[in-house]
Write a protein that binds this DNA or RNA. Structure first.
Ligand SMILES: NC(=O)c1ccc[n+]([C@@H]2O[C@H](COP(=O)([O-])OP(=O)(O)OC[C@H]3O[C@@H](n4cnc5c(N)ncnc54)[C@H](O)[C@@H]3O)[C@@H](O)[C@H]2O)c1
Ligand SMILES: NC(=O)c1ccc[n+]([C@@H]2O[C@H](COP(=O)([O-])OP(=O)(O)OC[C@H]3O[C@@H](n4cnc5c(N)ncnc54)[C@H](O)[C@@H]3O)[C@@H](O)[C@H]2O)c1
Lengths: 213, 213
DNA sequence: TTTATATCGAGAAAATTGTATCGATAAAAT
DNA sequence: ATTTTATCGATACAATTTTCTCGATATAAA
């Protein structure tokens, strides 16, 4: 069995997908081996940092050669839980919900959205990117029967807590939240916020500083 | 003039929008003053951390009372550059592009997407959420004339670098990138990646760890 | 009025994260 | 065959970020 480090920093975790995207691109181009130095150059990171990040996945390299790209991809995917797809329910088939439903690459990232839910009667019964839009009332029962672990929240902020409570009650273990609202979850449930506004904040703050000069 | 601290950490910058969302919610409920302790409780942060974050915006509180919510909102928005809207161009009117075009709250966050561009002839000429979809060839000229500072990249990864080069050539100063590709930009241009897969990586890694137990 | 308490603001301490150094090793160059 | 070079892996060091401590202050309670 592979023994993994007990703690991984969030920063490391967030850099791993970057490496993965790069590795897949390079492999398409026929690259077989890659060094931390090369990876670091692509992102303007420190090579040692890359090495440490890769170390957490359990990958081992060889001096003067680097790491085998194929092995690295497998190791990173394993580590992130992207080797087996997790089935997920999405609630809120609005603009963002539709974009997520239409994103084919999620399968590569271990995410398989199997159904959507909405409270809008006009949306219920339609199909979006080949997934049925179901009434919210059906979520608890279905989530249990289908062993759904991941719930995606794409409803307006004021309804987000209600949706989360429903999901948690239905046995969902991990929540990916797109609403800009602080959510309360019970111990043991995983909450991850995909906050676009945080990213935007960094952008506009930097831009403002540059423009003020 | 308000003298701002020279350096703000990215972490602080990313927490500020969280506070802002909370403050706006609380103000709707009639709250006038709020302490760092209260804010910290909402997010499970350390109160001192919140106090330091708020300090960077130039806000000052009073002992035993806390901060005036209204002042805090203004200060944070000022600091993030969300007090005046920045006009932006969006390239790639696909699933994600449409979601972004349809997001009304961006105005609150200082972002005003004024036009969309796409290379797909079937999309060009249509309107999405009341914004025209224009051919890519028109971008350089229009960006200059309209003094566009922000470019949003929502095209598939393999085309992202090309779009960025076009934007930079057109004088765009800041790029918000949604494609999972490492991009090269010249000195002085701001690049911010809105990488959803990073957030997903944290979620699935945590979930995998829990499920393995 | 006096005392208790919550909070700010500043600075110190601790923890975390990132960077540099160095020996070992494997390939390439001489 | 020997030297040089690139890289890994381990460890030490540095920077940053978070958390703790404490005095000052403003309100509320006694
Ligand atoms: N669109 C974006 O680009 C964007 C960007 C950042 C954040 N977000 C956030 O994502 C969330 C969704 O945004 P959107 O643009 O898709 O909004 P939207 O209004 O287009 O869609 C919301 C959908 O949720 C449904 N809904 C509302 N309440 C519900 C409930 N209680 N149960 C089930 N369904 C419910 C609505 O019927 C609608 O279909 C919001 O919280 C928004 O702030 C969106
Ligand atoms: N949809 C999602 O939920 C999601 C999530 C994460 C990341 N992303 C990323 O966002 C980007 C867009 O994703 P999407 O789902 O909207 O894809 P999409 O295929 O739906 O849309 C892409 C759009 O870009 C246009 N386009 C392609 N090349 C172009 C070019 N050179 N110039 C101008 N327009 C061009 C296409 O015509 C299309 O309209 C991708 O890089 C994707 O990886 C999307």
């Amino acid at each position: 069995m592979i023994s993994q480090p007990r703690v991984v920093s969030r920063s490391t975790l967030k850099r791993l997908p970057l490496y993965l995207h790069l590795l897949e691109k390079l492999m398409d181009q026929g690259v077989e081996n890659i060094s931390c130095t090369q990876i670091a150059q692509e992102f303007d990171f420190d090579p040692t940092q890359v090495r440490k990040d890769l170390e957490t996945t359990g990958a081992v390299g060889t001096a003067r050669i680097g790491f085998r790209a194929a092995t690295l991809v497998v190791k990173i995917k394993e580590f992130l839980g992207w080797d087996n797809a997790h089935d997920a329910f999405l609630v809120g088939a609005g603009n963002m919900g539709k974009a997520l439903l239409g994103y084919k690459d999620f399968e590569k990232y271990g995410l398989n959205i199997v159904a959507a839910f909405d409270k809008d009667a006009r949306k219920v019964g339609t199909r979006i990117f080949n997934r049925e839009v179901l009434p919210l009332a059906k979520l608890p029962n279905l989530a249990g029967r289908m062993h759904i672990n991941i719930g995606i929240v794409a409803v307006p902020a004021e309804y987000a807590q209600g949706v989360v409570d429903l999901m948690v009650g239905a046995g969902i273990r991990a929540i990916w939240n797109f609403a800009p609202a602080p959510l309360r979850i019970p111990e043991g449930v995983i909450l991850e916020n995909a906050r676009l506004t945080q990213s935007l904040a960094v952008l506009t703050n930097n831009l403002t500083k540059v423009l003020r000069k």
